[in-house]
Structures are given as structure tokens and as C-alpha cells.
Design a protein around this nucleic acid. Structure first.
Length: 138
RNA sequence: GCAGAGGGCUGGAUGGCCGCGGGGGCAACUCCGAGGAAAGUCCGGACUCCACAAGGCAAUGGUGCCGGGUAACGCCCGGCCGGGGCAACCCGAGGGAAAGCGCCACAGAGAACAGACCGCCUUUGGCCACCCGCAAGGGGCGCCGAGGUAAGGGUGAAACGGUGGAGUAAGAGACCACCGCGCCCCUGGCAACAGGGGUGGCACGGCAAGCCCCACCAGGAGCAAUGCCAAAUAGGGACCGCGCGUGAGCAAUCACAGGGGCGUCUUGCCCCGAGCAGGUCCGGGUUGGCAGCUAGAGGGCGUCUGGUAACAGGCGCUCAAGAUGAAUGGUCAUCGGCCACGGGGCAACCUGUGGUGACAAAAUCCGGCUUACAGGUCCUCUGCGCAA
């Protein structure tokens, strides 16, 4: 479970890295996108669950875009706890996904009770990198 | 100082780096960005749509001492009454029980027009210890019976007025005084009510938070209200336009005719054979967007006026989230709070390490109520003690 020591070109192993400048992060808000992602690949870690889906060509989203959504059910806690979990996930997505995610894919991060809000921030980032590596290896 | 009562405030701070939502701007950039409860969604309104002459009646729900405040309230303020506390102060769903129904467990003899268990008293009734007497007989404790009584004991949340007197065999509102209660009058108060006087005769137990009666209030649904726009997919209806061979059969289908293709021609084989990617309009569903959407009974500070107060009014200054898979933050450091452990010190305290930091996040907007809340802090008051 050692997190990868994050080389800057870590995504090169996937062989489809576009020029980093053009990678663009968007937030998903539509319910159907979440439902589609929920049926695709998934990978759990200690503090969160990652779902990932490669978008199909006919979808009206530019191919250089990475889309990301965040979900916290009531199981995570009350409104304050859910908001905090979402904000931390949003922050690591902003830090990690442009460098480690694959353009043309949708990612959904799902919060877990207690862990997402309490886990050390560095460890949380490593979790996401690990989950991305595993989910693209499937 | 100790113990207690009431009320208010606060809800970590600063900085670095990286971000988010909204307004303005061509842009650079700039301004603003959650709480005291934003919570529960329990009351009251504003605002929308639907229904509806006014009004009355009925049903249902709610409210319930009196007066005031308020847009309104079940909220707030002041007062009254009852209960608790030495006191500051606290608590009370606090209208009606002679309109009616119902209920009053357990205990207890008896619980609603009640009752006699232990008692108390009387006794010319029966039995009889014992005493007097030679005897006849007399007296007579006690028990039983008969009768009187409800003072005392005991039960209970509550026992059919309380205390005292007089009275009596013992007793009893049967009588008397005071208290209580009912009615009437007077005084004070806007009122709830309080005080006083007279009178009556103990006649009238509690529960209305069981039903009920009385008075007052209430049309329904809610911003996912409501209004508008757009898109694409499948499909419904109406009209228009174009098109639509015959026979048999309910129909499926069959036969012939027709069109197209293959094929050198004939024979033959295969396919098509009734609707249309046509136009306009209507209604419904889905998705998205815009409006509603934040300047209003607005908040804060200061001041003045009226009012005991709640509050109302005037003046001046000042403040301003509008998101919608839902922004208002993430991270690091320092300081400060608290806790644990260690060191120094008589102590106050100083210092190191580690941990912890409550409750809880706007969702149309206001006024309340209720509930949750680590720690800190301020004011007023009461009792006791000490000092002066």
C-alpha cells in the first residue's frame, strides 16, 4: 500500500498523456453522469472511493477535459461533516487530477464516514494517486 | 470569601501559499460572501396560485386569569391569584364541576346524596369471675346481645367544613365565637382581583390534560408556489396537401392486374404492393435555462421624546451571501485557551512534549418558540461570614 513516489510524468505509463497545458478540469453536476460513472470501474481506498469512466465519443464534451464529481451520502455525517469531506476531496482533485488523471475520462470521488475528514492531507493525496493507478490498470 | 438567584456577551486570532460562489468591468482588477442557534419545522405573518357575493349555521382544529404591545401569534411586557423558597427569585394548559355523561386505582369499615373496623356511651336483656349476706337476695369486672354516637385511632391524593367553647350518657353545625364557604352591599382598581360590612346556614369532594359547555380565532395549498423560454427524442390528436387497382374473405391470406430487379427473348425467379423523414396547430411527459431571489413590518450604533415595561415615534451615521450534485474554503506556521505527563519552584508561576478545540452550516423572506452547545467573560441581586 505504499503510495507511488509521484514522479511528475507519472501518467506517462498510460501512454495517452496530452500536452499538460491543454488539460482542463470540469465539475460534473448532472445526475445521469453520476449514474453512468457508478456503473464503470471503481477502486476503494482507506479514505474514499474512486469511480472512473472513459467518455464515449458521441458525448458532447471536448476530449482534453477531465470531469470530476463528488458525492457524500448521509452516511458520512451531518451537513457540516459532508461539506468538509467534499471540500477536502475537491482540493486533492484540483492538485492531483491535472497531472495524474487521463483526459477524456470522468471521475467520481465518494466520501467515507470519519476517514475523509480526518485523514492526513498528504495521505489523502497519496490515496487518490494510488486509486488512479489501480483503476487505469483494470 | 462561601453558597445561591436572574440576565447578557463571545463562539479562537494573525500571517504565507493555493482555491471557490456572486456583482461590477473590454481587461487588468475590484467589492461582497453563513449562525446564535443557519437546526427542529412547532406557531404567527408577508408573498404566490386555487376556491369564494356579504353574512349566518354546522363540522373540524386551535386558543383560554386580566390589561397592554405587535403586521400577527400559542410570542413579549406589566399586573392578579395559587404553590415553593429565610431571601433574591422560581413554578402554574390559570374559563366553566348547581347543563349533562363518565372516572376516582391501591389501601381502607366507608369514595358521593358514603360508612361503622378499633373505639366511646347507655342498657330494665342473657351468661358470669369476684364481693357482701346464715339464707333469700343484692352489688358487679368481663363477654355476648340490643341501642346511641361519629369526638379519637387507623387507610388514603381526597373521609361530607376547621379550631375553641358550651352542651351531653357519650356525642354531633343541633347551638355559640372566630376562620372558611355561598349570597348581597360598600370602597379601591380599566380589569383580573383586593379590603370592609351584612346575611345565610353548612347546603355544594376531586378530575374538564376523559367527553362536554361557553367565549374568541381559523377557506385550501405551498418558492418543488407561480410565470416564461428553449432543446431534442419517441409518440398522441385535429386540419391541410399529395397519394391510395379489382375480386373472395371478419381477418390472416389467396388469385388476377400493376411497379421494380435478375435474365439474350419467351417461360421463369425475387422484391414492392399503402401510406408520407410533407406542412400547420393543439395537448401531455422529459431535460435544461431565466424570472420569482433578496431594499424589507430590514439589521447595527448613537441620540432624543412618550411609556413602569414590552414597545412606538423622530433624527443622524452605517451595513448588505443569493448558491441549486448546492460557493463562503484547503493546507502550513505562530500566538492564545483547555487537558495529560515530565522538569524547576515553599507558592504564585515558569518551561518542554503530546493531545484537544463545542453544537451546528443559509436554500423565498421576516417575527417567535423549542432543542443542541467545549471553553471564556460581564452585569445586577439575595443569604451567611469577615473587616470597617
Amino acid at each position: 500500500m505504499t503510495p507511488p513516489e509521484a514522479p511528475t510524468d507519472g501518467t506517462a505509463s498510460h501512454g495517452e498523456t496530452p500536452p499538460a497545458v491543454s488539460v482542463c478540469l470540469e465539475v460534473m453536476k448532472k445526475r445521469r453522469d453520476f449514474l453512468l460513472a457508478a456503473r464503470a470501474r471503481r477502486q476503494g481506498t482507506k479514505a474514499m472511493m474512486l469511480q472512473a469512466r472513459k467518455r464515449r465519443d458521441e458525448e458532447d464534451v471536448p476530449t482534453h477535459v477531465i470531469r470530476v464529481g463528488f458525492t457524500c451520502s448521509k452516511k458520512v455525517g451531518n451537513a457540516v461533516a459532508r461539506n468538509r469531506a467534499k471540500r477536502r476531496m475537491r482540493e486533492i482533485a484540483r492538485l492531483i487530477l491535472p497531472a495524474y488523471g487521463t483526459p477524456g475520462w470522468d471521475y467520481v470521488l465518494i466520501g467515507r464516514a470519519h476517514e475523509t475528514a480526518a485523514r492526513d492531507f498528504k495521505a489523502l493525496q497519496s490515496d487518490l494517486k494510488y486509486a488512479l493507478r489501480k483503476v487505469h490498470a483494470q
